[in-house]
Amino acid sequence: MRQAMEKNRVLHKRRKWVAGILALAAVCIGAAELVVCRYADPALYWQVTAPARACARAAADTGRAAMTAAAEAAHAAAASAAQTAAGAQQAFLDAVAPIEVTMPKKTASRAAAAKVIDESQLAGPSSLPAPQGMVDETVSRLEGLEGLELLTGGGIDVVYYNQTDEAWASAPYGSDRLGGYGCGPTAMSMAVSSLTDEQIDPAAMARECAGAGYWCHGSGSYLSIVQGIAASHGLECRAVPPEQLTEEALQLHLSTGGLAVALMTRGHFTRSGHFIILRGLTLSGDILVADPASRERSLTPWSYSLIVSELSPSRHDGAPLWLLSRPT
C-alpha cells in the first residue's frame, strides 16, 4: 500500500514537470510566432495583440488615476498640516507675549535713557569661581542694624541689599522681576542708602527707575541709570574710562569714603552683564565689593587687575565705571 502511494506521488510530480515544460514551450513558440508575425504580417500581429494592449492601457490609466488621487490627498494633508502649524505658532506667540504695563512717559531730560543694552543683565551664577577665599571677619563682615544689613570694612559701611532675597526677588521692575533683572536698581539703592541720609530699598528704587525710563524689558537697565539716579539724589558722579583709570586713583577714591559703580561682563561676577558696587580696600590693596546678587562675592577680596579686566566693553552713558561721592 505504501509503495503504491509513493509511486503515485512520483508520477504526479513528473506530470507537473511535463506540464510546465509544455507550457514554457508553448510560450516560447507563441513568442517566436509573434516575432515572425510582427515582420511577416503586421496587420495580423496588431489584430492578435490588440486585447493585450488594451488591458495594458487600462492598467496604466488606472495607475495614473491612483497616483493623481494620492498626490491630491497628500497636497490636502500638507495644507491641513501647515494650517495646524500656523495655529500652533500663533498660540505659542500669544502665550509668551510680554505683560502689558503702562509706564509713565519719558521726559525730555530722560531721552538719553533710550539706548540699546549691550549685554543682558539677567542674574545667575558666574562663569568662574573666585580666585581666593572670603575675607576674615575682622576685615569685613555683614552686620544687622535696625532691620538693615551692613557690609563693614570698606571706606564706609555699605547698606547691603540682595536682589534675589525673598523680600525683593518677586518685586516688579517694569514687567520683569527684580530677582532676574534688578541688579541696576539694587546697586543704586545701596549707593543712595549708603552715601545719603535717605533709605531707599530695591523695590522703591525699581519703581523710580522704571518711571524714569531706565528699565529695559527683558534685559535689565539702560546704562544711563547710574548718572540719572545719582543726579536725582544729589550724588556726585564722575565717569572714568578704564583707559584713564589708575590703581592709585581708585584706591584713593575708595579709601576716602567714595563708592564706585562697575558694570561687569562675563567672568567671575556674571555670565552676561552685571552692576556691582566697589566699596573699599583690604590692607593688602585688594578691592571689596557689594554684589547685589551674591553675599559670598561681597565678602571676597578681588584684585585690581581682575576687576579692570572684567569691566564691560560698553562705552556709552559713562560705562563701565562711575565714581560716586557724597553730595558737597
Rank of each mutant, 00 (worst) to 15 (best):
L195C: 01
R64A: 09
A95F: 12
L299E: 02
A76W: 00
P185A: 07
V35K: 06
A54Q: 14
I276Q: 02
P292S: 02
P98A: 10
E119I: 12
A65P: 00
H268G: 00
G180N: 13
P131Q: 12
A203S: 15
G228L: 13
M205Y: 09
P202V: 06
E310C: 08
A81P: 01
R38T: 02
P241R: 12
G155E: 01
G155R: 01
P327L: 03
R15M: 13
A108W: 12
G257M: 04
A260V: 03
H75C: 04
W322Y: 14
A50S: 13
G267A: 02
I225K: 04
T196P: 00
A65G: 14
L145R: 13
T246Y: 05
S193N: 03
F269T: 03
L259A: 02
K105L: 14
R110V: 05
R9T: 10
L323Y: 12
T196Y: 01
E137P: 06
W168P: 03
G182F: 07
K106Q: 10
A206T: 09
T265W: 02
V226K: 04
S126E: 09
C37A: 06
V35L: 13
P129G: 07
K105I: 10
R279P: 01
W168H: 11
G280P: 07
L306F: 01
G257C: 02
L11E: 13
Q90I: 03
I225R: 03
E100S: 08
A91L: 12
D118Q: 14
S127N: 06
G154M: 07
L11A: 14
E119C: 03
G234V: 03
S80I: 06
L11F: 14
R238M: 13
E236Q: 12
E248S: 12
R266E: 04
P104C: 09
E100V: 13
S221G: 05
M1R: 13
K115I: 14
W215D: 05
A210H: 05
S309V: 01
L34A: 09
S224Y: 15
D165A: 11
A88R: 13
S127T: 07
E149R: 10
F275Y: 15
G180T: 14
I225N: 05
G180K: 11
E137G: 11
Q121F: 05
V139G: 02
P104E: 03
G280A: 04
K7M: 14
P292G: 02
E6C: 07
R266N: 05
L281G: 03
T102E: 08
R295Q: 09
G213M: 08
R207V: 13
S194P: 02
S109N: 12
